[in-house]
Simulated assay, not measured.
Amino acid sequence: MLNSGRPFASYHLWSLFAPATGQERWHCQMKRGFIKARQKEPLIKSLLAKVSPPQRIGLLAQKGVYEFHHHRQWLTQPDGVEQVAQLLKLSKSSIEIQQRVIQILKNYYHRPVLLGKHIIQLTSGDEGFPQPIVIHQKNYQFRLYATMDCVFIEADKILHILDFKTGRSAFDERQALVYLLAARYLYPDYQAVASFYNLERCKNSALISVTSKQLDAVEDQLAQVALKHQQDMHHYQQNPHNFSKIFPPNPGNHCRYCPFSSICEFSDAKHSKS
């Protein structure tokens, strides 16, 4: 559990705090309030514990890639996909999840993008929170959390951070920027690049690289996010009745996809059912 009394930042918090370009009309600060400020309330805790089908598919896909490389012989065996599927216990999932994950495994079996790479980190998806990177500067101090799916070394000694995706959501470059900032502290001897790879669509993003000055700007931005979120949390703890003022709602059609629509008094989805 993250301590709300100390400033921290992550891509997840940044995405809750500010929308990706082009997503402004669907962004709702109240979602950040539910997830961060009211997460210990029993009803909200139970909603947060639910894993949606897209989330489940993403977790299983990451685990599948991990298992292919943990048991590398399965990438060359005719029944390799079936072996990984059995290890993932796919039979306990819904038909939709089974079908999509099987296709992801087949995709990776035929195009194992990490095969032959000098992998120095590959997560299975169930490691929990990573150790924070404590960033100290003259004007600020905060903890940075960054969970990287895969890190490998290219032939030219470039550190490559690869993030796996599923579904049809657009890549958010801010996630790569957070990883590149983390790499500055975790792997200071390497020049780093980042990219995304969609396991369902077999689609690569362009390589993302930044200058040291650009990373400084990312760090400053994350410091502002960490500080403002800490202030919001403090204000809420002092005045819980001001929840909707501290974390203002933005109701609309997007409410139907929000996990808190059933309990949010501002939800368009809730009002449409009444």
Rank of each mutant, 00 (worst) to 15 (best):
S10T: 10
L13V: 06
L13H: 06
L13M: 11
W14T: 09
A18Y: 08
P19N: 08
P19W: 10
E24Y: 04
W26G: 07
I35Y: 09
K40Y: 13
P42E: 14
I57S: 04
I57Q: 09
G58F: 11
A61C: 05
K63T: 08
F68E: 04
H69M: 08
H69W: 08
G80K: 12
G80W: 13
A85M: 08
K92T: 11
S93A: 11
S93Q: 13
Q99M: 05
R100C: 03
I102F: 11
Q103G: 07
L105I: 09
K106S: 05
Y109E: 04
T123P: 01
Y140E: 02
R143E: 11
M148K: 03
C150N: 04
K157I: 00
H160I: 01
I161G: 05
I161W: 07
T166C: 13
F171P: 00
Y187L: 02
D189E: 12
V210C: 08
Q214R: 11
D216Q: 12
A217H: 10
E219A: 06
Q221M: 04
L227D: 05
L227F: 10
K228P: 00
Q230I: 00
H235W: 07
P240K: 05
F243L: 09
G252H: 11
C255M: 10
C258P: 13
C258E: 12
F260W: 07
F260I: 08
E265A: 14
A269E: 14
K270P: 01
K270W: 13
